[in-house]
């Protein structure tokens, strides 16, 4: 319930108008949105029970390795139940396969579409989504870890909350199923990071400073 209360309001995209090239405009709009979402994500992380008790080094490491996973849980969740096959990056930024391909994001689309379809079949509840997002961050396998014990305590707290929630719904298999969806989330995030780095390095798409800093930490 704490995670539900601290879940940030979804951001709206600010349409880029610096170019007439519509696929570049889409890409720049998306990157601006991701940069602002990152800012919100960092503020949100501090409110997860146990996160602020971690050393600053561990807080940084977890965010540097888990940020894209946490952001993609949000995109996949917003894309649930949407008619058609589009990905909902924001209420006013929905991209279909063709738009993603034109923007150089075909690989990102394929990966995210797979993740979205998986979550759709699982029929996630809002409680599960916010816990999954926090667990993705806590489980980000940052290396090296400064204080393993604190990070494990942080993970255990979230796992316990999820188990309690599922047992209150008499859904004994749900916890395991959610945990088993984490490898696909990791894989999807890796593909998303690679796609953005490729666009930045090969097509010289300019990125905001924070987004670039976080991508560089994954490179």
């Amino acid at each position: 319930s704490h995670l539900l209360l601290t879940e940030p309001t979804p951001l709206a995209a600010n349409q880029d108008d610096s170019t007439n090239d519509s696929s570049l405009r889409t890409l720049l709009t998306l990157c601006d949105l991701l940069n602002r979402e990152l800012l919100v994500l960092i503020g949100w992380a501090k409110q997860i029970p146990g996160f602020s008790g971690l050393s600053l080094v561990d807080q940084m490491s977890l965010l540097q390795s888990g940020w894209m996973e946490a952001l993609l849980v949000g995109v996949a969740w917003r894309s649930q139940g949407v008619a058609g096959e589009g990905l909902v990056f924001a209420g006013n930024l929905r991209l279909d396969e063709g738009q993603c391909r034109a923007a150089g994001l075909a690989d990102l689309y394929e990966a995210l579409h797979h993740l979205t379809a998986k979550y759709q079949v699982m029929n996630l509840s809002p409680e599960e989504v916010v816990t999954l997002k926090a667990m993705a961050l806590a489980n980000s396998d940052a290396d090296p870890v400064d204080c393993l014990e604190s990070v494990q305590r942080f993970q255990d707290g979230l796992h316990e909350a999820l188990q309690e929630y599922e047992s209150s719904r008499r859904e004994q298999h749900r916890t395991g199923r959610l945990l088993m969806s984490l490898p696909l989330l990791r894989q999807t995030a890796d593909r998303a990071v690679k796609a953005l780095l490729r666009l930045h390095h090969h097509r010289h798409v300019p990125l905001h400073k924070l987004l670039l800093e976080m991508l560089d930490a994954k490179a």
Binding site: I42, M60, Q64, L210, A217
Partner: peptide, 15 residues
């Protein structure tokens, strides 16, 4: 941590 200065600053900022 010079390379990650924005993240560092955001985490240190208590608000």
């Amino acid at each position: 941590k010079e390379k990650h200065k924005i993240l560092h600053r955001l985490l240190q900022n208590s608000t």
